[in-house]
């Protein structure tokens, strides 16, 4: 019962922030509409690049053109969801650290990690998500993907766990702001990290493969979800992604508590 009440409180807080961000959006409508057009453009650029590359080669790390296109589409959806729900709050948190506004977040009677993680949402990429999901459905209907209902569900669950993994990973990096204060330029770095996962992770060899499979698990951005969708791997990957998500989330919380013990306010 208590857990339910708590859960409702957290959902209400997240909902209030969500509404606030929607209202903010109305202030800059022209920019919102511009981004609505620009954002899908970036997704199409990636696809155009892949199609041009496949004019010259037969496969990339053993993956066919359709498989690489699917990986890029899944990566595009993943990136858009991060920009929608994760990155804005993390950038806001780093700005709060720099300006001293973070103190107010610590005073609120709610888990501070949760509060900073839901403080901002951006909706610029909504059309890109819609178009890319539509493209996946189109590829399914036209026979490019042979997926079952179970594999579609597993795909969605794997993407969800992947988002938790990378939320936790980026949250840990953002928490370094407590020591470093100014982390300007980190947006490009976050973007580039996700770009690593938008091609099949099997393109990396040697040390890079170890790093991108086990330390920064890039395969959870798009490679594993697409393998699950195509039935090339099964429930074991979904379970693995769930375990990884739990582990990363726990690590991010432990690191957060550790970092807070070293926090000294920038305000007076």
């Amino acid at each position: 019962m208590l857990l339910g009440v708590n859960m409702m409180k957290y959902l209400k807080v997240a909902g209030a922030f969500y509404r606030y961000c929607l209202i903010r959006l109305l202030e800059f409508r022209s920019e919102f509409w511009t981004w609505s057009l620009v954002s899908p453009g970036w997704g199409f650029l990636s696809l155009a690049t892949i199609l041009l590359i496949f004019n010259q080669v037969n496969d990339i790390a053993g993956w066919t053109r359709t498989e690489v296109v699917l990986t890029s589409v899944a990566g595009s959806i993943f990136m858009s969801l991060l920009w929608w729900m994760v990155f804005p709050s993390l950038y806001n948190f780093m700005e709060l650290i720099r300006t001293g506004g973070f103190d107010f977040y610590l005073l609120k009677p709610i888990n501070s990690q949760f509060l900073v993680s839901v403080s901002r949402f951006e909706f610029d990429n909504y059309l890109r998500v819609v178009i890319m999901v539509g493209l996946l459905i189109f590829l399914g209907l036209t026979g490019y993907i042979t997926a079952t209902l179970a594999s579609v569900v597993c795909f969605v669950v794997t993407i969800f766990f992947g988002l938790i993994i990378f939320y936790s990973f980026f949250f840990i990096i953002s928490t370094l702001a407590i020591w470093l204060i100014n982390m300007e330029g980190i947006e490009d770095f976050f973007d580039s990290v996700i770009t690593l996962g938008r091609y099949p992770t099997y393109i990396y060899n040697g040390v890079l493969r170890v790093v991108f499979f086990y330390i920064i698990p890039m395969a959870f951005v798009a490679t594993f979800p697409i393998k699950v969708l195509l039935g090339k791997t099964g429930l074991e990957t979904v379970v693995l992604s769930g375990l990884m998500a739990g582990g990363f989330l726990l690590a991010s919380h432990k690191f957060w508590l550790f970092a807070l013990r070293h926090y000294s306010s920038a305000s007076s």
């Binding site: 590359i53 080669v57 496969d59 990339i60 790390a61 470093l180 100014n182 982390m183 300007e184 330029g185 980190i186 490009d188 770095f189 973007d191 580039s192 990290v193 770009t195 690593l196 938008r198 091609y199 099997y202 393109i203 990396y204 060899n205 890079l208």
Partner: peptide, 27 residues
């Protein structure tokens, strides 16, 4: 003073370079 930001930018570029080179070499 803000050399850390420049390092971060170069690091971001390095990640993109890593992806592109790995992709071409995997063909």
């Amino acid at each position: 003073i803000y050399r850390g930001n420049i390092v971060l930018m170069r690091l971001s570029g390095l990640l993109l370079l890593t992806t592109l080179l790995s992709m071409w070499m995997s063909t």
